[in-house]
Amino acid sequence: MDFFSTYGFLIVSMLFQAMLGLSLYIPLMTGQLSLASPGFYALGGYIAAILSTTVFLPEGGGKWESGTFPIIYVLIETVLAGLASALLALLIGFPSLRLRGIYLALATIAFVEIVRVLSLNLEITGKAIGIFGVPQPFINKFDYVVLALPLLIASAWFVYRLERSRVGRAFTALREDELAAAAMGVNPTTNKVLAFVLGAVLAGMVGAISAHFLNTWNARQGTFDVSILVLAYVIIGGSRTFLGPILGGLLLTALPEVLRAIAGIQGLPLFLSQFLLDGRLIIYGLLIVVAPLFYPQGLITPDLFKRRAVKTKEAGA
């Protein structure tokens, strides 16, 4: 159990980040670079943090003992966070998704920044300090895996099936060539809004659980930095199959731990081990620059599986 108490936090974080990767991937299925995920993630977290500290109080008042917060409340918050994100995404989606390419990315950056400034200033979000003491349904951080893992599997399955369904095909057609897709009867706006909303719902739900997991929630949770991290998951992991962002989220979240382990090796020059400890974002940044040169579609591509499948077939024949 020692492993789980040491790495429990990391493992669950990896699952969360993989889902955030998926939440950016879904709009990207229609060819839209949306950096809005952290905005909805922040929103979901605030909903959970506010509800669990003001509405879902124990009978007779007071505070929840650690580990006693009912999971059913977490689930209710998660659903509400998903719904709220869906509504907000619809609201901003219809007007802004007429925008192509770069303009949409800019609009979503603006959205994330506006959410951040609002949460820094509003009473209900605890201003700059944020919301402390979000009650815990579990004593061990690793136990959050019972919430995070099913949600990751469900969302991965959702996207896997989506890619093979009528709607998913329309998404891909839009990514390949929006005008041609429209000329073939695919409504660009409704499909793009749908993808945007689905991604928002996932990000909002992840935020709700994360608020409990992190125990506290503040304006630093949903920032432009997070946008870039999540983007890195997709670019490095792969942008053409749902496995890409999942792998990217898992790997890049584990990377600092790996670097820490390497930094601990005896005999490294001080500056190098310092770099490995503090240089996580430098390495992320450089990976984002270099990866597209060697892996234009990310580490995992759909062709990877096809080639594999062909090889197995040949081997069998």
């Binding site: 770069i102 670019i235 240089g279 996580r280 974002l281 430098i282 940044g285 984002i288 597209p292």
Partner: peptide, 28 residues
Amino acid sequence: LRRRGADSLLTLVSSLGLAVAIVNIIQF
């Protein structure tokens, strides 16, 4: 990326990556 005729969104992402690297090099 220009040489490879890559999607301009990819170039945007690439410049973002470099920005992140530079900022953190300064901090380092």
